[in-house]
């Protein structure tokens, strides 16, 4: 698996910086970029899975009971899920540090 970017030395890099290990982006916790996070209102959620289907980062999971939740380690806060949600049950909430 890859190392944190700051640990790479010149000689560790493949020619052209090719990444020859599929799926290794999992070690980069890109969720810390986000300025907003999606929050579900389960009163309005109809468990249709549109949010799960549209998430470009596969950062949304179905939890017990059929409702959905984002993995905030990888969710970049793009808001596509909130935009696509049929019942508008997802609100983008300001990320507070």
């Amino acid at each position: 698996m890859p190392k944190p970017m700051e640990e790479y030395r010149v000689e560790d890099l493949n020619p052209g910086c090719v990444i020859d290990e599929p799926g290794n982006a999992v070690v980069y916790h890109t969720g810390n970029w986000k300025s907003q996070r999606p929050v579900w209102n389960e009163q309005k959620c109809i468990k249709c899975g549109v949010c799960w289907n549209f998430c470009p980062d596969n950062a949304i999971m179905r939890k017990e009971g059929g409702y959905f939740v984002a993995d905030y380690e990888y969710c970049k806060g793009c808001g596509i899920c909130a935009h696509e949600c049929i019942t508008q049950c997802i609100t983008m909430v300001e990320e507070v540090v």
């Binding site: 970017m5 700051e6 790479y8 030395r9 010149v10 890099l13 052209g16 910086c17 090719v18 990444i19 020859d20 599929p22």
Partner: peptide, 14 residues
Amino acid sequence: VTMGAFAMPELFAE
């Protein structure tokens, strides 16, 4: 493989 991926400032100089 992935070609032409992104690099953060902590990797670019390398």
